[in-house]
Simulated scan of single mutants.
Amino acid sequence: MPNAEFAYRLEPIVDLHTEKPVAHELLAGEAQCPEWGEVLWRRWHTFLISEIPRLLDSMEGLLFINLDGQQILDEHIHDTVQAISCFSPRIVLEWTEQRFMDAHFNRIVARLETYREMGFRVAIDDIGSIGGIDGLGRAGAIHADFCKIDGKYFQEVRSKGPEYLQGLCQHLARNGAMVIVEWVETKTDHRLALASGSHLGQGRLWKHARQSSCGGSL
C-alpha cells in the first residue's frame, strides 16, 4: 500500500449462509496488531482519516475499526473519529478487551453512545473469552450491534456440539446484536457456527475472500 510507515490487512467477515463477505476488519500491522505506544497509535488514527475514504471507495460492505478503552477516551483519537463521521453508516467501531479501563467504564460507554449518535455502529469482541476479559458485560452496557464469539472459546466447544453456543447466541441476538464467530478454520467449524445460530463468521476459512465479492447488506 502507498504508505511506508503503516501496514495493515483486511480480514473478511462473511455471511454464514452465503459465505460472501459483508464486512472487513481493518487490522494494523502485517501480521498482528503491533504493541505501539500512544504516539504511534495517534499517528495511525490520523493516517486513517485519509486512508478510510480510499478503502471504502475500493470495497463494498462495512469496515470494522478496533478501539480499546484507552483509545476511546483519547482526545486526539476522538478527533480522528469525528473526522471520519461522514462515513459512519459504513463503519463499525469495535471495542476490544485491551486496556479495559475498568475505572472509566461509564465514560467509555458514554463516548460510544456519542459515536452511535453520529451514525457509527458498535461491535464488542471476546464474548466468552477464556483467560481474558469477557465481553458480555460490555455488550449489555452498550447494546452492541455486533458481538464476536471469542475464537479460543469457539475452539473449546468444537467437540461439544452447537448447543454449547446456542444459548449465548440467542441471548445476544435477543438484545439486538448480530453474532460473529471468530476463528472459523474449517468446513466443520462453519457448520458448527451455523448450527449455533450465529449470523456471521471470521477466520482462516475465508482469509483469501476478495473484497470485490462483498455481497449483501447489514
Score class of each variant (00 low, 15 high):
residue 181 V to A: 00
residue 154 F to M: 09
residue 154 F to G: 04
residue 185 E to W: 04
residue 166 Q to E: 13
residue 168 L to R: 04
residue 157 V to L: 01
residue 156 E to F: 05
residue 158 R to H: 15
residue 180 I to W: 09
residue 152 K to L: 08
residue 163 E to W: 05
residue 181 V to Q: 02
residue 170 Q to K: 04
residue 190 H to L: 06
residue 189 D to I: 02
residue 160 K to I: 10
residue 159 S to I: 10
residue 172 L to E: 14
residue 153 Y to E: 00
residue 181 V to W: 02
residue 181 V to H: 00
residue 179 V to H: 07
residue 171 H to C: 00
residue 178 M to E: 15
residue 158 R to Y: 13
residue 152 K to C: 03
residue 188 T to M: 02
residue 199 H to K: 15
residue 194 L to C: 02
residue 157 V to Q: 02
residue 164 Y to P: 05
residue 156 E to R: 09
residue 183 W to Q: 07
residue 170 Q to V: 09
residue 161 G to F: 08
residue 198 S to A: 14
residue 168 L to S: 03
residue 171 H to M: 03
residue 165 L to I: 06
residue 174 R to H: 14
residue 201 G to L: 03
residue 163 E to H: 05
residue 183 W to G: 05
residue 150 D to A: 14
residue 196 S to E: 05
residue 191 R to L: 02
residue 156 E to Y: 09
residue 192 L to F: 02
residue 150 D to Q: 14
residue 173 A to Q: 15
residue 178 M to R: 15
residue 181 V to R: 00
residue 167 G to K: 12
residue 185 E to F: 08
residue 176 G to R: 09
residue 201 G to T: 01
residue 164 Y to D: 07
residue 152 K to N: 02
residue 182 E to Q: 14
residue 158 R to L: 12
residue 177 A to Q: 11
residue 163 E to Q: 05
residue 159 S to M: 14
residue 153 Y to G: 00
residue 151 G to A: 06
residue 171 H to K: 01
residue 192 L to W: 07
residue 156 E to G: 03
residue 194 L to F: 04
residue 181 V to E: 00
residue 171 H to T: 00
residue 157 V to E: 00
residue 167 G to W: 09
residue 179 V to F: 08
residue 165 L to P: 08
residue 186 T to R: 00
residue 188 T to C: 00
residue 196 S to D: 03
residue 155 Q to R: 05
residue 187 K to Q: 12
residue 183 W to I: 06
residue 166 Q to I: 01
residue 177 A to W: 14
residue 153 Y to P: 00
residue 151 G to Q: 10
residue 203 G to N: 11
residue 177 A to I: 13
residue 201 G to I: 00
residue 187 K to N: 11
residue 187 K to D: 13
residue 165 L to H: 11
residue 155 Q to W: 13
residue 197 G to W: 10
residue 198 S to T: 08
residue 189 D to Q: 04
residue 168 L to Y: 05
residue 177 A to L: 11
residue 165 L to S: 07
residue 202 Q to Y: 12
residue 196 S to G: 04
residue 150 D to N: 15
residue 201 G to C: 02
residue 203 G to D: 14
residue 182 E to N: 10
residue 188 T to D: 09
residue 203 G to P: 11
residue 161 G to S: 04
residue 175 N to Q: 15
residue 173 A to I: 15
residue 191 R to H: 10
residue 202 Q to H: 12
residue 185 E to I: 03
residue 160 K to C: 11
residue 154 F to N: 06
residue 194 L to T: 03
residue 183 W to L: 09
residue 191 R to Q: 08
residue 185 E to R: 06
residue 157 V to I: 07
residue 184 V to R: 12
residue 170 Q to G: 04
residue 191 R to F: 08
residue 170 Q to H: 06
residue 150 D to W: 14
residue 173 A to N: 15
